[in-house]
Nucleic acid binder design. Structure first.
Lengths: 396, 396
DNA sequence: CCTTCTTTCTCCACACACAGGACAAAGTCT
DNA sequence: AGACTTTGTCCTGTGTGTGGAGAAAGAAGG
């Protein structure tokens, strides 16, 4: 079970590994140009990496007018596990060293069932993926949880929506079970890393990634690095006030963003509209289902239901209010919107954009794209794999 | 006039220079411990710095039980110029290499008179300081302007309160005139750097520095470095909405923070209260002066005028609303409040604190000090000196 | 006054990292 | 077959940095 993955011996090797991860296979010559090292020095480091087995040379590339080059690539047997624990479901993915998703499982589950039950589920999903032949073992695992994390220790702290997890040694426990290095982070941060690695945020240094799920959170990337704040709670925008005397929120205050717009708030509003007979479509859905969800609203909007559309527009306006403030403050180069309710899609986006462009300073919005995430439900798991690969591909 | 200041040849020398700047004089042995270099290597670098004249060895330190050490310190003739251009006044300071203020001048002037007039004033103030024997020439100058700056080029961009400065090559022009390296930044960022170097924010990695002057801005420090955003407008929080259908703002929107609370808004409110006869104190002040200012309100509050106190409390509440949102989002380790109206002092602070502690998440506010800046009007100039010293003390 | 112990600073030999050129290998193109 | 290209290896020179052996300068104690 335990698998001793080699680690790079120095920063050069670490850089090479990350380069191979992000750009795929390469010849020695190309690598030399990219890292700005002499061919001789580079050859030495590559040879050492070959010895440790972290990279392999498989076959020759077609000639480009001279001697054919060897393909240097990361060991094809390397496997990372990406785990994204949401409020109501768990995503687990297996990736290769290039962070391509080889297999992906999703399982509905409430985080509030506590760390023990959730862990059991995660491990069984990991085992299933392994049993299907996708991996013999894992060289690292990243895991995201829906709440603030003390990052260096990998421990959730005072998570509002997941009581019972407070102080649970997630990193320690998972590392023990899987026999490999583990890193823990907030799910929103991982989504940001996912979009940065393989999604819309490639090549953007400073950006925000707003995730709308049961609650609302925001990943902050500064200079290519996730910013986590002093106590790990940065990006917790769900309880920013949008209406001085607005709706009562579970947190005890009034007018919080989450009270006015989030997956949960949207479902509540939809149910109310259905009961009050304002929307025939939603009322019909409520007949068949026990409860309405954000997805119900998506479906209704897609079917052209005016009440659903209005709910989304109104929500987008609220969200836009907050994002407008953040854009003025943070002046990002990109705003990504993602999470479970991306089904709300362009209606939501249009509403947010209108609000932001109207309310933020021209200098900050001048060249500011506001877009939907392009990785969908896999974003978190990919980000998790990215997180642990950054760790594994750094000097021991 | 032109003064060729030597520059460090490598990062070791740069680190040594900054260490000497921040910690004052030191022996070679102490330096060796601090930089984690062998004594031999260190001796070489120090000798080279001595040759270039950037540092000097003056005298022997008292023995600590063995051979007495040489005092290594930055050249006592080094001089930095710190310039802080506010909306309505100019501050100019001369510092030594340790960034201690040797002389300081202040002159009221409206930025809107344009770059040419302001420059003339700045140069004459610098000349006056030099004439008084504080400096023979300058080894670098930092300058802050009240608006967004394209930092790498040192050029203001689309500054709302200082039209006429847009695109003016501040860095280029000042460097030409003074014959030394120049760096330009937003005044708020400089205040943050000042408080970080010599004020309340020493040893805090991530913090916010809110400056209340004619407008309102916020310096953002991430991992000890000022964050400027994609287009240099980060921290521009004056136009975040605090009241959906609030007061009309000069920017064209409604309910902006600056419309409800800032030096200018405060003065306006005070005048109105005076005219409506709600405050005898303020009315009396309006008799003698042409117009009321934020300082008038400070004085009234100090004298116990209830209307002034209420204005400040109300303003603090507005400011607190915005800061509460920023604290949730950014999760800083400290919030500093400064600027011209620090005279409002603890009344304002109390009001802000109440609002923030009530409205932000406990995890973010748990151990969050909210304090007044301790450098007063010199903060900007010190920050400016710090900015340019960081530049001069880095490899060419 | 002399000895011993400390601290500071200097000098020197050695290890290591890295660059850059020469050269061999393996191609393509004419 | 010969000229030219690209890739990869080998070797040597150079500059960076470490660590140890002292020398210098002083304190404390007998």
């Amino acid at each position: 079970m335990r698998r001793m993955t080699a680690r790079p011996e120095n920063t050069h090797q670490a850089r090479l590994l990350r380069l191979l991860r992000d750009n795929g296979s390469n010849s020695r010559a190309q690598l030399g140009d990219l890292v700005d090292l002499s061919r001789s020095k580079l050859a030495v480091e590559v040879d050492r990496l070959l010895e440790t087995g972290l990279v392999v040379a498989d076959g020759l590339a077609p000639s480009r007018g001279g001697r054919r080059s060897h393909n240097i690539r990361l060991a094809p047997t390397l496997r990372f596990l990406g785990v994204d624990i949401g409020a109501t479901s768990i995503d687990v993915a297996v990736t290769n060293a290039e962070l391509e998703v080889l297999g992906h499982l999703n399982h509905p589950m409430d985080v509030r069932e506590g760390p023990v039950a959730v862990f059991e589920q995660v491990l069984s999903m990991a085992a299933k993926l392994r049993a299907s032949g996708l991996a013999e073992g894992f060289d690292g695992a990243g895991i995201g949880v829906p709440g603030p994390v003390r990052f260096p220790e990998g421990v959730p702290v005072a998570p509002p929506i997941m009581p019972g997890w407070d102080g649970f040694p997630v990193r320690e426990a998972l590392s023990q079970e899987l026999g490999c290095p583990v890193m823990v982070d907030n799910d929103v941060n991982l989504m940001a890393m996912g979009e940065q690695h393989a999604g819309v945020a490639r090549s953007v240094g400073d950006f925000l990634c707003v995730k709308i799920g049961t609650g609302i959170g925001c990943g902050i990337v500064v200079g290519g690095e996730v910013y986590r704040g002093t106590t790990g709670s940065a990006g917790d925008i769900g309880h920013i006030q949008v209406e001085p005397e607005g709706r009562a929120c579970a947190c005890g205050n009034r007018g919080c963003l989450e009270a006015h717009f989030s997956g949960a708030a949207l479902a509540r509003d939809a149910e109310q509209a259905a009961r009050e007979g304002r929307s025939a479509y939603l009322a019909a859905r409520l007949e068949t289902a026990e409860r309405l969800t954000a997805e119900s609203v998506s479906a209704a909007a897609a079917a052209g239901d005016p009440v659903a559309l209005e709910l989304i527009r109104e929500g987008g306006k609220r969200l836009g209010q907050v994002i407008a403030g953040l854009v003025s403050f943070f002046n990002p180069g990109l705003v990504v919107i993602g999470g479970g309710v991306t089904g709300l899609g362009h209606t939501l986006l249009a509403s947010v954009r209108t609000q932001v462009y109207r309310q933020s300073l021209p200098l900050a919005t001048g060249n500011l794209p506001i877009v939907l995430g392009e990785l969908g439900p896999a974003a978190g798991a990919i980000g998790a794999a990215r997180l642990i690969s950054d760790h594994v591909f750094s000097p021991a």
